[in-house]
Computed example of a mutant assay.
Amino acid sequence: MKKLAPLTALLAAALLASSAGAQQLVKVKLQLKWFPQAQFAGFFEAQAKGYFKAEGLDVQLLPIGDQSPIQTVATGAADFGTTWITDLLTARQQGIPVVHIAQIFQKSGYTLVALKSSNLTKPEDFKGKRVGVWPSGNEYPAVALLKKYGLTTSLDSTVANPSVQAVTYPFDPSIVFPDKVDLVSAMTYNEVDQIVGLGYSLDKLQIFHASDYGINLLEDLMFTSQKVLDDKNFKGSGLSGREVAARLVRASIKGWNYAVRNQAEAVGTVLVNCGNTCKGSGTRSSAAGHQTWQMAEVAKLYNAGPTLKGMAGYLDPAVYKANVALLKSLGILKADPAAGAVDYGVWQMATGKKVK
């Protein structure tokens, strides 16, 4: 057998080592709640900066559109996901064993938007109006706000004469607003800017922030299935599912911290990963412009509560308790979720900090 020259042998060894290292990365699928956009900037930065790789993970970020991430994680099509807390807790109530492992956004960005010319100034004024809501569990914040003010909706089949007509539509406000609905669902970081792009400047809009009315239902969180957490040998990696979860959370928080501190760079990273859904509407149709707006707004939702105390990713037990109490009072939850609905152990492993 012909011997390799020393330099050639070294190069061959390096290539083999590199190949082995790549094979050792644990493949992980993270299901995003929507299409790629700045709403997920921290995850894209964790990927771009190599934070996932540094944790030994090869993370694939999966878009989903207007479906619920709960199903893809529950069925094993994805290992982890992001969703809203009401979506997760109602899934638990239905017997789906999904588990909250980290809280990314610490404040709700959900709003209902009307034209100021409609003369709607408070939730009580919504009686007899048409409200645009989203499907697949995304309607819960609107339902919670309406129920708090004694308003029933056409979403409840047990109500003969609902006081509010709910109009379900697939997220794009231009489909229904303002001709087909009086109020429309809008996230501060996305649809509000789209509505502005339709020609309705902020001074022409009446924006009802759900959190201002005590409906601070937490949004983007990280979750997984109990099956993943109980796995002693995740995908044959030699790591437990719990350890993989902690590594994923640790890298994700690092990515989010970087994205929020370096917003212009984060927007650039997002633009590399997204397509037409990165654009706004009409006069705000520039992808870069819309994502810059979005990044600034999601940074506000991230930089709140525990994050400001150096505990990014932590679910404040008091806020969680208030969310559960609100959902129970509205009849959305029938009882307190089981203790296993939230696993603080993953966050503790990821950060090295103790739950307070």
Rank of each mutant, 00 (worst) to 15 (best):
K356D: 11
A186F: 05
I175W: 03
Y213I: 05
P36K: 00
L30T: 02
A304P: 03
L198S: 11
A246D: 05
K180S: 14
V26E: 10
G81K: 04
S185R: 01
Q103R: 02
S285H: 06
L10S: 05
A17Y: 08
C278P: 00
L25C: 10
M295R: 01
P317M: 10
K204L: 11
G268D: 14
H209W: 11
L326E: 10
K129A: 03
A9R: 15
G280W: 09
G340R: 13
K49V: 01
M311D: 11
N303D: 12
L217Q: 09
S154P: 04
P63A: 06
S18T: 11
N273V: 06
G81I: 07
N262D: 12
F126S: 02
S211P: 04
K328I: 07
G340D: 15
K49T: 06
V73Q: 04
T188Y: 03
A350K: 00
D79Y: 03
Q291K: 04
D87A: 15
N276H: 08
A77Q: 15
A299T: 14
P141K: 04
A12W: 09
W134A: 15
S211Y: 15
V26H: 08
G280V: 13
A144L: 15
S329F: 06
L32A: 08
N138G: 10
L11K: 10
P6L: 05
N216C: 08
